[in-house]
Amino acid sequence: MRIGLDMMGGDFAPAEAVKGVKVYLDNVASDVHLVLIGDEQQLAPLLTAAQLDQSKYSVVHSSQVIGMDEHPTKALKEKPHSSISIGFHLLKEGKVDAFISAGNTGAMMVGTYYSIKAIEGVQRPTISTLVPRENGSYGLLLDVGINADCKPENLAQFALLGSLYSKHILKVNNPKVGLLNIGEEEGKGNLLAQATYPLLKENKQINFVGNIEGRDIFSEKSDVIVCEGFTGNVVLKMAESFHEIAVKRNIHDEYINKLDFESYGGTPVLGVSKPVIIGHGISKGMAFKNMIQLAQQIIDSKLLEKIKESFVAKEVQ
């Protein structure tokens, strides 16, 4: 198994990326070979200082970096030797089995769409975030930003993608799916929610439990929470702000600390044919380590194959 890692993406790269690689290689027993994509001149002293097992990684040189504020499409076109461009080339050619970056999110999404295909039947890929719950388990919220406007059919697909992720990665048996809404009763909400409800209710591939309200997001009422990306991103950023406020006020709480989404690493792009993981721009060592581990889990669990099978089955119905 070969996992490609953009060493130049993120506010604290490449130093924190190297720290993440070291934590992963020192603590996770696996047959993973890491392909580190970045400027060799910057990486060499950091890798030497980290004293890594040289048999566990290789370096692919990139002479360019796509900045966080650059226009995604323009940057990918004008910087073919950037770490993100090279990473997608390696993924497309089958030279790595997954690609991870905490760099320019827009460039990662454009690269995903143009370098690898969506799984047949998937209308729109989606991204999700983990939602910590008081009992120590995690729910899943999606979409959280890349699909601000959606059709009911899109939300129905997000529900299936989220269910498969919850089952095979989070190990939740028969995950409960809830539609985020302003009331529990059927018929509540805007036109999108009203039109989505019957699609979820009729879908035999998911365990739909009905509408859930904002106060239910951090509860165990549903394992997968479905909404369009506009609402999902607002919820995500608000939850992140709770943690920021706690830090500013010097409040130490085990549960509040779990709202630091940066510590989870990144989120996979669900619905595409190869594993792509997008990290938070402020990712530090532990986040990079977690992203590598998540990529390994996705490959080991054969999640993408299970998604393909489910969408084929859905078309047959």
Rank of each mutant, 00 (worst) to 15 (best):
K22Q: 08
L142V: 01
G136C: 03
I256E: 04
I182W: 02
E220I: 14
P125I: 02
D149I: 03
S273H: 02
L236I: 09
H33N: 07
I282R: 07
F12K: 11
L25G: 05
M108I: 04
E184V: 15
Q42F: 12
E228Q: 08
L200E: 09
E185G: 02
I217K: 05
L259G: 08
A287F: 09
Y57A: 11
A246K: 14
P132C: 09
I37P: 00
G38D: 06
Q297L: 03
I206F: 08
I169H: 07
G10F: 11
G20W: 09
F99A: 02
G265P: 02
K95H: 11
P80I: 00
V65T: 04
A195Q: 04
I217P: 00
T73S: 15
I100L: 14
Y114A: 13
E262R: 03
M108F: 02
D53R: 08
A50C: 12
E186M: 05
K188Y: 12
R249S: 14
V226S: 11
M108L: 02
I100T: 12
V209H: 05
P80L: 09
P175T: 11
V177D: 00
L199T: 08
S263T: 14
H252G: 13
D6G: 01
D143A: 07
L192M: 11
D143R: 00
E185D: 12
P14W: 08
A156N: 10
G285T: 14
S58T: 10
M286I: 12
E93A: 14
M286E: 15
D253Q: 04
P175D: 10
I307V: 06
V96L: 07
G111N: 09
A75T: 10
E93S: 11
A159L: 11
L236C: 00
S222P: 04
